[in-house]
Each structure stands twice: as C-alpha cells, then as structure tokens.
C-alpha cells in the first residue's frame, strides 16, 4: 500500500519536474528570439523580420512539398508576385498597408491556383520542370513588366505608420509566422492533414477513402500560394523596395533545399533552417571580417555564393545521413517537450 503511494508520488514528482523543464525549454527558445529584438536595436530587428519571413516561405513550401508531395521549383514566383502586388497597391494605388498584404496573399493564391491546375495533369519530375520554367518566365516577364513592377528600378513599398519602426515590423512578421505555424499545426492534426498524407502516398487509395484528390491538391497549392504571397508582401515592405533581381530562379531552388535541410513536415526544423539561411548573408560578412586570418579570395561575390555553397553541403549531409533533416535531429527534444506520448 505505502509502496504504491510512494511510486505514485514519485511519478507525480517526476512529471512535475518534467513539466518545469519543458516550460523552461520553451521559454528559453522564446527568449532566444526575444533577446536580439530587445537588445539588438534596429539592425537585429531587421534581421529577425527577415528570418521570420524566410520561415513563412519555408512553411509555404512545406505545405506543398511536405504535406501534398508536390514539388515546386518556382516558388519565388509566388513570393515575388505577392511582393510586387503589395508594393503596387501601396505605392501606386495608395491603398492602406493591410489591403496591400491582403492583395499580396490573394495574388499568390491565384498564381498558385493556376500552377496547381497544371499540376493536375503534369506530375512528378515533369511538374518540377514546369514550375522551374514558370519561375523563370515570371522572373523575366511579369517582374519586368514596367507598369506593374517599375521595371529595373523596382517598386517602392512604404510601410504604414503603425509598423514604421523596425521593431514594430519585426513583431508583425513574427505574428504572421505564429499564425502560419498555428495553421500548419491544425492542418496536420485535422482531416486535411490526413487527407493530404493519403494523397501524397497513393491517390487511388485516397480517393476510395472519400478524399477529393483534385480538390485537396488545388487546396494545397492555394494555401501554399497564399502563405507565399503574404511572405512576399512582408518582404516588400521589409526592404521597402522590390526588384526583379530579388526573385531570381536560384532563390527558389535555394528555398526548396532549405526546406529539405530543415526537414519536410517538421515545423521547428524548417523555422531553424529558414532563419539560418535568412541570416547567413547578413551575418557572414561581419563574421568573416572579424576573423584574425583573412581567407585569400574574399570579396562581395563570395558573400553572395557562400550561402548556396553551404546549403548544398548541408543538403548532401542531410540526404546521406539523416533524411528527416534538422527536424529529425531535434526529434528527441521535441518529443520530450510535447510530453512522452507520441
């Protein structure tokens, strides 16, 4: 009798301790984000914004490639169209900031819907090719259409007074990230997530279980496009100027690799990998300049190509040794934080 009570209390004590550790871990992670915001000034506020925007883009790719199993090598087109739409609405039409972002999301959705309709007919590797070609075409055609994007000079995307400061803007970006993370979580926990898993694995099985394969595929494209467009809108006002150069096709390839490195279907992994690649080009030059020994062939161009260089190295390591990406590496931690149950 007393032995049982003892065991029970010990179990309870252990769960209490576990809970404390878990909460501490989550708080520490949040603090890690908050720290640069509070003490880093405008420079770090800008960086946090950029990291959050990249994370949103990564999650957008995750919806499409991770959940629905549809590869997109032209994602920069969705993001770019969102960015230019938002800039267009803000600077040419003088629409309020919120409308610009909504317009960006809408433009991304519509673009993705069109590509999604193609994806109903064109599958697998061919879809990868089509999206790559689409991205290239969007880059050279739509983004160079002077009336819409301002041509080579780019379009201005002023912020509204409310998020004028870099700190406020960073908070806005983080808020969007939180909302997107929440929807991704609900997606996988409800019917849509299960249906998409079935569609990804076997469309015929999915359809005999009552899943509208066409609808879910288009839905995944739309949602991914919506999130990508929104990220584009945020990106436009982050930089306050949008240029076609920002959305070269290499960027899309980099993003896909970034999502794979983070680990498809792993929210935490994708956020970490995305933030890393968002910050790398900003932090790397300072870091290298601060080194006591300067590598010989350092120049502006190197800063430009080091991130792709690194992401590819990481990709190869990931594909060979842990195909689940950073998410797989972190799995023990996340399982602990969520509690022991799987």
């Amino acid at each position: 009798m007393s032995a049982t009570t003892l065991v029970l209390t010990r179990v309870r004590v252990r769960t209490h301790l576990g809970l404390v550790v878990r909460v501490a871990l989550i708080l520490a992670a949040l603090a890690l984000v908050a720290l640069p915001l509070v003490f880093g000034g405008d420079v770090w506020a800008q960086r946090v914004s950029r990291a959050a925007i990249y994370a949103v883009i990564g999650l957008s790719i995750n919806t499409l490639t991770g959940h629905a199993g549809q590869i997109s090598l032209g994602h920069q087109a969705f993001v770019g169209i969102g960015a230019f739409s938002s800039a267009f609405m803000a600077s040419r039409l003088g629409a309020p900031f919120g409308f610009g972002l909504a317009g960006a999301a809408l433009a991304g959705t519509v673009t993705a819907l069109i590509v999604g309709m193609v994806a109903l007919r064109v599958k697998g590797l061919y879809l990868a090719l089509v999206t790559l070609a689409f991205g290239l075409t969007a880059e050279t055609t739509i983004f160079n259409w002077r009336e819409f994007t301002g041509g080579g000079a780019g379009a201005f995307a002023p912020r509204s007074a409310l998020v004028e400061s870099d700190l406020a803007y960073a908070l806005l970006c983080l808020a969007v990230l939180v909302v997107v993370l929440y929807t991704d979580w609900r997606l996988v926990s409800t019917k849509a997530g299960r249906a998409l898993t079935a569609v990804r694995n076997d469309e015929r099985i999915a359809s005999t279980l009552g899943v509208d394969v066409t609808g879910y595929k288009l839905g995944a494209f739309c949602f991914s496009g919506l999130v990508a467009g929104l990220a584009g809108g945020l990106f436009a006002h982050w930089n306050q100027v949008v240029q076609a150069l920002d959305f070269e096709f290499q960027v899309a390839l980099l993003w896909v690799l970034m999502a794979v490195v983070g680990g498809l279907r792993s929210r935490l992994g994708i956020v970490i990998a995305s933030s890393f690649f968002a910050l790398l080009p900003l932090v790397l030059p300072n870091f290298l300049a601060g080194l006591p020994w300067q590598p010989p062939f350092l120049n502006e161009a190197v800063y430009h190509v080091l991130p792709p260089f690194l992401v590819v190295l990481m990709l190869l390591v990931v594909l060979r040794f842990f195909p689940g990406g950073i998410g797989q590496l972190l799995a023990p931690v996340t399982r602990f934080v969520k509690g022991a149950k799987r």
Partner: peptide, 10 residues
Amino acid sequence: LVALVGVALF
C-alpha cells in the same frame, strides 16, 4: 532531383 539541383547550384 533535389540533390541534382543542389549539384547545379554547387
């Protein structure tokens, strides 16, 4: 395919 894209970028 993703890996070969990586090779091109590399």
